[in-house]
């Protein structure tokens, strides 16, 4: 009964356009989308480079990037905290408990995912295209751009996988963001807080939004992937 009341209140909050609730939702989107944007700027070229070049330590680096996909968020949060806290080497920048700190932590978590997925996808395409590249004497940069252009579906999948990870993240952003109301409180940290407080209606409303967004992201991945399979 209590749960039903909480669900009803959650819908009420969402439908009434509760400003506090939507501030949290918008901040979440802002932090996550910004972080994924930066991670893509780093991950796409790094993945393409790893897919198209061979150098001493290449295999080890690929293994490392793959391993970093499973980075524990709280460990990343702790590491970023130590870097940007007052006594840390970047303490002078005064970033602790700001959205920027949360973005930094998210970028560290998401970049390996985008890099590894990009590398795996583009390496497959590169293998198919290599005879043509060699025959035409395609330069390395043009080769990378060709792969990025032709592998856009896989890159979109990598991007959305990164966004999914960022949306679901709680540990790192809690540590470096501090979960400050109206400033660094995002959906996941807010759900944690409200649940511990017993304010289930707010937690459920945010949980519902988070769930819908996550499902939408995955739906896009499935639809785009299937469409590409059907075409290919």
């Amino acid at each position: 009964m209590e749960t039903l009341i909480a669900i009803k209140q959650a819908f009420g909050l969402l439908l009434s356009g509760d400003s506090a609730l939507f501030t949290i939702i918008f901040l979440s989107l802002k932090v996550n989308l910004t972080a994924v944007g930066y991670a893509a700027l780093l991950g796409f070229p790094m993945g393409a480079l790893l897919a198209t070049t061979r150098f001493y330590g290449h295999t080890m680096l690929v293994g490392l990037v793959n391993a970093l996909m499973g980075l524990p968020p709280v460990v990343v949060g702790l590491a970023v905290y130590m870097m940007i806290s007052r006594s840390g080497p970047l303490g002078v920048l005064d970033l602790l408990y700001t959205p920027t700190a949360m973005i930094i932590a998210q970028v560290i978590l998401v970049t390996p995912i985008i890099t590894a997925l990009t590398r795996a996808a583009l390496a497959r395409i590169d293998k198919d295209y290599t005879p043509l590249f060699r025959m035409l004497g395609i330069a390395p940069m043009r080769r990378m751009l060709t792969l990025i252009r032709d592998g856009w579906v896989e890159l979109l999948t990598a991007l959305l996988a990164g966004l999914g990870r960022a949306m679901a993240e709680v540990g790192a952003v809690m540590i470096v963001g501090g979960n400050i109301n109206h400033f660094t409180r995002v959906m996941t940290t807010s759900i944690t807080l409200e649940t511990s407080r017993g304010a289930l209606s707010v937690a459920l409303a945010l949980g519902g939004v988070l769930l819908v967004l996550t499902l939408l992201i995955n739906l896009v991945v499935v639809v785009v992937g299937r469409r590409e399979q059907d075409d290919g």
Binding site: I125, D128, Y129, P131, L132, R134, M135, L136, G137, I138, R142, T146, D150, G151, G232
Partner: peptide, 28 residues
């Protein structure tokens, strides 16, 4: 190099239109 044409048993087909596949070669 580019003056040597090579047809293989399994051709390299790019993820582009038929025209785009040809265009890529000439652009290169």
């Amino acid at each position: 190099e580019a003056r040597i044409g090579l047809m293989m048993q399994k051709p390299v087909i790019m993820r582009r239109s038929v025209y785009g596949n040809c265009d890529y070669v000439l652009k290169a």
